[in-house]
Design a protein around this nucleic acid. Structure first.
Ligand code: ZN
Ligand code: ZN
Ligand code: ZN
Ligand code: ZN
Lengths: 382, 382
DNA sequence: TAGCGTTCACTCGGTTCA
DNA sequence: TGAACCGAGTGAACGCTA
């Protein structure tokens, strides 16, 4: 008897006689008949298969397309099995598995965004780049870079090497650990002159309003990648749906981490957004900032700097626009994720009550309290 | 023997000798003979085909139209098969399939886009919706709806039934026609109290900064669909790349046009964006608004109204969030398209110079002029 | 690697409209 | 009448899991 390899190589499609590619739905058959059977066997009840002749059309490579009634009949006659076609539910399950695996793989994969190459230090500029970035721009970039190094990166290196350090099961535990880096991030903002000169109320307002997004971006810089602890913790406290979206957002931000400065500038651009981008159901937290104009100008400074920087690192202006677009698209995605998370946390008064003061102040108050709670933020000028 | 691809490429129509387009009704033939055979073979019994000469007219590209009788005869002679023409019943079945598929596609689109059902008038509200929309909200919605009806819709019905009315070849011609509805749109804004009470400079600033996006959304409401004139005009003035993206954006906005109010609110939300979202290379046009705070409040009013409305029309809050997300994603896409267009038009000084004053003021000035040009906008309170 | 599904370019029917 | 278009069906190429 032939072994299967010999069978495949030399035996023709049992339906049409064309070259077979293997056993499909139980029968040695060609690519075309395989596709034909999958498409047509499932709609036997819903579609009227009628032979224009008397039902004994010969099915050959050339004429197999003439009568699909007789072709389908022959498929069944040579033994093709409809039950080997995946049902809608089975297909859905398969798609899910595929998506899961893909996610796992892409996590490892480092995608390059645009033609921007990673650089080791911000001091390196080619003549081309000089045309977009003025001397003062470069000084400003250097300052931003160094500021971030001495705050967030330093903290990561000294006492916050990883996050989360354990597999959390409680939201408040998770967020309490989250707040450690959050405080360092506020330190970073405080060294930015445009932020530090704002009134205390406005600082609080900005930090509250952009809480989720800025911290998410910051985490991507200081703790790049998706640790197992993070996935498990997030799944435990947020559930699968939110976790999947969080992971997706981390994957989307990953390419930008190749650049030494973009995300640090983006942090500032987002931080200086006076609009309330939280999804909270308490009206008292929807405070708007007082000095909207100063905030607006500050945002402008860093948006412009970011734009110039992107321009300087792109080969063409159109590439810069595309890149900027990617950045904005990502930001919108991130914003949406955090609207979801906010909506989720809003009602968890018990969890909110267990949070440490600063983190607690990011959410609606479970019970009326003295607003001096906010003093825990410690965002005074220094 | 030739394979079918070679056959198709080099061999002429077996009927008339014209360039063949493939196998039609079993015979390598041209577009014209394909249509001819389909139309005439079916009415062989009902129509008297008679040759004015003696029945041996030569059928060539030039003379094929002279004698139907001999042309049809030749079709049959070279082997065209009448049985490959779909019968009336088969055509009916096919139409049914197409309709079913179309419905399925639209269904998918709609469920992707939320489970919002179109309503005929804004006055219709179920008790469920009352929980989200207060009495004053509903009055406001009604006002917005009526305002839009009496401005943009009225103008469409009276004197701007379609756009564009011709296949433009010049950018300035195209945009000059565009400006007709643009002016009506400004009328719509002027009836909105929050807009009308702004200082004249701020009105101008808002209209300029959001020019492309608001007009694009407005066109989607008043002239839904993608007309041939639009595609041709756009291809002529913007080129293929931008046109494709424009078409894509119109396709993406289409599902939202099922709702009677959402896009009208979106128009206001976008209009009240004080940020400069244009891609223009002149610094003088990057003016920022003076009364940013009023604009911010105005935007808040309509954003909130939009949100409440979406919430009221969604079955669950999560659906509402998803829908809102789609809306924002779409807006971002649209913004990006118009950044592209701005970048394209910026340098076309000659085109800009040919525009009528209002339209011209939307773009960088080709040469220094008295800024009284802006008075052409006529956005004073009335 | 065998054997599923998915994707996409292509063919050939009909339809539309200038 | 015929150019231009639409859309279902086809099958080659490929992706993926077990
Ligand atoms: Zn076969
Ligand atoms: Zn048959
Ligand atoms: Zn011909
Ligand atoms: Zn004749």
């Amino acid at each position: 008897m032939n072994n299967s390899s010999t069978t495949r190589s030399f035996n023709p499609c049992l339906v049409c006689g064309d070259k077979s590619i293997g056993f499909n739905f139980g029968v040695l058959s060609c690519m075309a008949c395989k596709a034909f059977f999958r498409r047509n066997a499932v709609r036997l009840g819903t579609y009227d298969f009628t032979c224009p002749k008397d039902g004994d059309c010969s099915i050959t490579h050339t004429f197999r397309r003439i009568c699909n009634c007789c072709r389908l009949a022959k498929c069944f006659r040579v033994g093709m099995r409809k039950d080997l076609i995946l049902s809608e539910a089975e297909k859905e399950a398969r798609r899910k598995t595929v998506a899961k695996n893909r996610q796992k793989r892409e996590q490892v994969l480092k995608t390059q965004c645009l033609d921007m190459v990673p650089v080791s230090t911000i001091q390196y500029f080619t003549p081309h780049q000089l045309t977009y970035l003025s001397q003062s721009d470069r000084i400003l970039l250097g300052n931003v870079f160094n500021t971030y190094e001495t705050t967030c990166i330093a903290a990561r290196n000294s006492h916050l090497p990883e996050f989360p350090t354990k597999k959390h099961t409680n939201l408040y535990d998770f967020l309490n650990e989250y707040s450690l880096m959050h405080k360092v991030l506020i330190d970073y903002f405080k060294v930015i002159p445009e932020f530090n000169t704002l009134a205390i109320d406005d600082k609080i307002c900005l930090i509250r309003n952009q809480f989720g997004v800025v911290n998410n971006i910051n985490e991507a810089i200081v703790h790049p990648g998706i640790s197992n602890n993070l996935i498990v913790s997030s799944s435990n406290v947020y559930g699968t749906y939110i976790t999947n979206r969080l992971i997706k957002s981390i994957q989307r931000i990953a390419p930008f981490t190749n650049d030494p400065i973009i995300l640090k500038l983006l942090l500032l651009v987002v931080a200086f957004s006076s609009g309330n981008c939280r999804n909270r159901n308490d009206t008292e937290m929807d405070q708007i900032c007082n000095d909207t104009l100063s905030i607006y100008f500050a945002q402008n400074i860093y948006t412009e700097l970011l734009w110039k920087y992107v321009l300087s690192r792109s080969s063409t202006e159109i590439d810069a626009v595309k890149f900027f677009d990617k950045l904005v698209q990502f930001l919108l995605y991130l914003l949406d994720v955090h609207l979801l998370i906010d909506g989720y946390i809003n009602g968890l008064y018990f969890e909110i009550e267990q949070m440490e003061p600063l983190m607690q102040s990011m959410w609606p108050k479970p019970i009326k309290r003295d607003s001096s709670l906010m003093s825990g933020m410690d965002v005074e000028s220094d």
